[in-house]
Amino acid sequence: MGLGFTIIPKYLDVILLGCAWTIGITLAAAILSFIGGILFAVIALYAPWLIRQPFRLIEWLFMGTPLLLQLFLIYFGLVQIGIDLPAFVAGIIGLGLHFAVYNSELIQTAILSVDKGQMEAARTLGLSRTEALRKVVVPQAVRAVIPPIGNNMIALLKDSALVSVIGVSELTLSAQRVIGRTYRPFEFYLMAAACYYVINLAMEWLQRKIERRISISR
């Protein structure tokens, strides 16, 4: 069987819908990973030992194993303990948690690298430690990690393809479904790749724009 790309327009709507799902899942997981990352970082740095240690273990487990394996755990594991979530929710949670752990690493380093004078200045104004962390240290750390977190989010977009394996109808699975009907894997996977590439370029553009915006307030 040779190649024939003229068949693509016929299934364009399915592919575009898949794109929309991919963007939505990426966005939702990105937000989760960002909030989770801040939370995890604060726990890892400031929580009492008893909370910190088991937390470290989880973090370690998430960084040392493949995302695909983690998705299987979350999807099937939640069912096992009686929580039957739609696949896309499980996918968002899995992606979100996975990247929250990576974001947390970045944020921890950033928090530790905020100049000690900043904490002092906030304390001399009469802010408590928690207030100083919240208003002064964490916002600066977040600004400092936006570029590397941007890279993580671009990685998240590409890793969102993995949720197709647990049955989320995003771009990759949409392509697969079309292929099931047309038997044209090369054309449609290439089409899906092109879609990912365009979204990826858009995210890189956005990342550069945001970086320029924040560079002034650092």
Partner: peptide
């Protein structure tokens, strides 16, 4: 903590390296 924050609110301090908060105007 409560006491010292109260005290510090009454004492202004200016540092050698300014320690302005860079993320705020």
């Amino acid at each position: 903590e409560k006491h010292i924050n109260q005290m510090r609110q009454q004492v202004g301090m200016v540092f050698q390296h300014f320690n302005l908060f860079p993320h705020m105007t």
